[in-house]
Design a protein around this nucleic acid. Structure first.
Lengths: 239, 239
DNA sequence: ATTTGTGAAACGTTTCACAGCG
DNA sequence: CGCTGTGAAACGTTTCACAAAT
């Protein structure tokens, strides 16, 4: 997953791995806020997430100074700061390509920050699916309309939930229409321009790699907890 | 994250990041094999995947010497070797917890070797779902049966596809029954023993992090695949 | 002529540890 | 005191570059 990596951009470029951790901080901070706590130290937040306090402080330091020595961070303020950094304090229309079992599950998923992300257009090639509507009433249009509709609606993000063989075609159409960030569930390596970001959702690859540790050789299983909290998946085939 | 290792043993432990790349190698090698090619060099494989040849050679070197100088690697042999390393050359029963939209999509997914992984048990708490069956005929049982059934069937892998609030409970039950590898779709940080591996599937986090780059600040964007575009696959009828 | 496998260098990320501020 | 923010060190991963093999 990783995908899009390269970024030899500039000197102050913030590591993508740091960017990928920010959503976890936001999620956890909101949980803490819900519990009625107004302030947290990096130690407390780290404990909650399962990472080191130093990492949290270092990560945040890329963006500014949000804490108070001897006190910690104001939870509400930090949430707002990170959401602003990630541009989560605005609305994003998203195009979904593929309305099979997975696509429908994605369209029905209420948890995409509801307010932040909205599936604004859905596409498929199967005649039986075209013309149907998601639970939210979004019409399923023909995949040939992707570029046109995406451009017209000014959509910048896309989700690909089609078979591997159709993944590249879907990506090309989305990009042609102006999409610059793609969440890819198709088990295929997408070729995209440098200006486009791709994150892979690869459950099959995740399963296929975990089996490596499932034996009784202590040399392998050693210690399993490798990535306690992460917001980004890895690459390979998808469901 | 990664505290697991405690540094005591770990002398020759292979980096998890290497293990996570192996499934991609296998998938790509199979694609190459299907095209009728019998031998590949690390350069060719690297080009196909979008990584460096040095990385592939280094990754493989952790496990042995599979290539022939001046020639490259025998595709079929390398596939078999990696599949053996990952223990993909045997069958794995998997327990699925959660039969909502996502869980059903997972149960219906026919994508990975089919032969390697099999959803052998399904659980949920919703009375309306219990008693139903997946397309493959697997009965949906009550979540209270997880530990018992998993232990009885000797299941070592589990997939959690329930709401965040029920994630930890599902993990605890699976682990109690003997599961040692979990694919977690629930947006919650699972607390598990060091002997248990967890891989997170976090589409929301992936989306929330990509928005960071969606602006016109060249300082931010700079990065994504720079691979040369290839001919797009032919349209696949049927999705 | 090619291409592997691998020391060594380069690069990237995490953690240490502490000055300094509240 | 407690805790942040951050140089510097430690650690991990990738890439270079080339001897060796065919």
């Amino acid at each position: 997953m990783e995908h899009a990596g390269r970024g030899q951009r500039a000197e102050h470029a913030i590591p993508d791995i740091v960017i990928r951790r920010l959503p976890i901080y936001v999620r956890t901070l909101k949980l803490i806020a819900d519990s009625g706590t107004a302030t947290v130290s990096s130690d407390e937040l780290a404990e909650e997430i399962g990472v080191t306090a130093a990492q949290i402080r270092r990560d945040l330091s890329y963006f500014g100074k949000f804490g108070k020595q001897g006190k910690g961070y104001d939870v509400a303020t930090l949430v707002a700061e990170i959401e602003h950094i990630l541009q989560l304090d605005r609305h994003w229309d998203v195009a979904l390509v593929g309305f099979g079992n997975l696509g429908r599950a994605i369209a029905a998923y209420r948890g995409f920050g509801a307010k932040t992300f909205e599936i604004a257009a859905i596409f498929d090639r199967n005649p039986e699916r075209i013309g149907r509507r998601s639970e939210d009433g979004v019409l399923v249009q023909h995949a040939d309309e992707i570029t046109h509709v995406v451009r017209e609606k000014n959509i910048r993000m896309g989700i690909i939930a089609v078979p591997a063989a159709a993944g590249q075609e879907a990506a090309d159409a989305l990009i042609e229409g102006g999409v610059r960030a793609i969440l890819n569930y198709a088990p295929v390596i997408l070729r995209v321009p440098e200006t486009v970001w791709v994150r892979e959702i690869d459950p099959t690859g995740a399963m296929q790699s975990m089996t490596y540790y499932l034996n009784d050789d202590p040399e392998r299983s050693g210690s399993a907890k490798e990535e306690p909290r992460r917001a980004a998946p890895e690459p390979t085939p998808g469901w």
